[in-house]
Amino acid sequence: MRALLMKDFLMLSKQIKMMVAIFAVLIIISFITNMTMVLVIFSLIFASLQLTTAFTFDEMSKWDKYANTLPVDRKTIVQSKYVLGLILIASGIVIFTPVVFLSDEMTRQLPFIDIFQTIVIVLSIALFYISLTIPLFIKFGTQKARFIIFAIVFLPVFGSGFIQYGLRTVGLNQLMSYIKYVPIAAFVFLLLSYFVSVKWYERKEF
């Protein structure tokens, strides 16, 4: 698996350099504007999107056809993508969470618990994202999967009337009480996603 991850990181090296440059500018801006939480959100979103880039590179170079001639089983190939996604997300958390807490110590904007909850929720959303995208990329390819993901992500926007009705019915306070279960749901969804991805990849013809 190490060789597969090295291959992905080598392909993403130019993207990572650009990401570091962008984040360096954003860190400066976040301290000036006191909007460091936006930095964490952006970093996790950007890290998750790098997984899409990795799949796109593989598809363009016909990597899977070559990979399946190597002495590596298909399950390991799928595992490498999940590990890559988790490493990218963890890197965003490790690098930028200290920046958020340092900025908050200087500005006293938000209580510690609010910052922590926000980071956990954003992290959970990032896990949901990779759990959704990996099996779809494996099953349909990056081009078709992007349209499916777009429909899944933006469908709630078009159904905002139903969301507002649900909030009035359930109550915002009651809804917020379930927020603590979001990380657990994200972890369970990630496991289910992995098993589905392995099953689809093992059945796929290259």
Rank of each mutant, 00 (worst) to 15 (best):
R2N: 12
L4Q: 11
K7H: 09
K7N: 01
D8I: 00
F9I: 07
F9L: 15
L10Y: 14
S13H: 08
Q15D: 11
Q15C: 01
I22K: 01
F23G: 00
F23W: 06
A24K: 01
V25R: 07
L26M: 13
I27V: 15
F31L: 14
T33E: 11
M35H: 07
M35I: 12
V40Q: 04
S43F: 04
L44A: 05
I45P: 02
I45R: 00
F46N: 14
A47R: 07
A47H: 06
S48Y: 06
S48C: 00
T52Y: 14
T52V: 04
F57L: 09
F57W: 13
E59H: 12
K62Q: 14
D64V: 07
D64G: 01
K65Q: 13
Y66D: 05
N68R: 08
N68K: 02
L70I: 13
V72G: 07
D73F: 09
R74Q: 04
R74G: 04
I77Q: 03
V78L: 04
S80Q: 02
K81T: 06
S91W: 11
G92L: 07
I93Y: 05
I95G: 06
P98K: 01
V99F: 03
F101Q: 02
L102T: 07
S103R: 03
S103W: 00
D104S: 09
D104G: 03
E105L: 10
R108V: 06
F112W: 14
F112E: 15
F112S: 10
F112G: 07
F112R: 14
I113P: 00
D114V: 07
I115Q: 09
F116W: 04
T118Y: 11
I119D: 07
V122C: 09
V122D: 06
F128S: 10
S131C: 02
L132K: 05
L136H: 06
F137S: 08
K139M: 09
F140R: 10
G141T: 12
G141K: 10
T142H: 10
Q143W: 02
R146P: 00
I149S: 09
I149L: 03
I149Y: 11
F150R: 02
A151C: 10
A151Y: 06
I152F: 08
V153G: 03
F154P: 09
L155A: 15
V157S: 10
V157H: 04
S160K: 12
G161M: 03
Q164H: 08
L167K: 10
L167A: 06
V170C: 02
L175S: 15
K180V: 15
Y181A: 14
Y181M: 12
V182M: 01
P183Q: 01
A185S: 11
F187S: 11
V188E: 10
L190S: 11
L191E: 02
L191I: 15
L191W: 01
S193Q: 06
Y194W: 12
Y194L: 15
F195P: 01
S197F: 07
V198L: 03
E202G: 04
E202M: 01
R203S: 14
R203T: 12
K204M: 04
E205W: 04
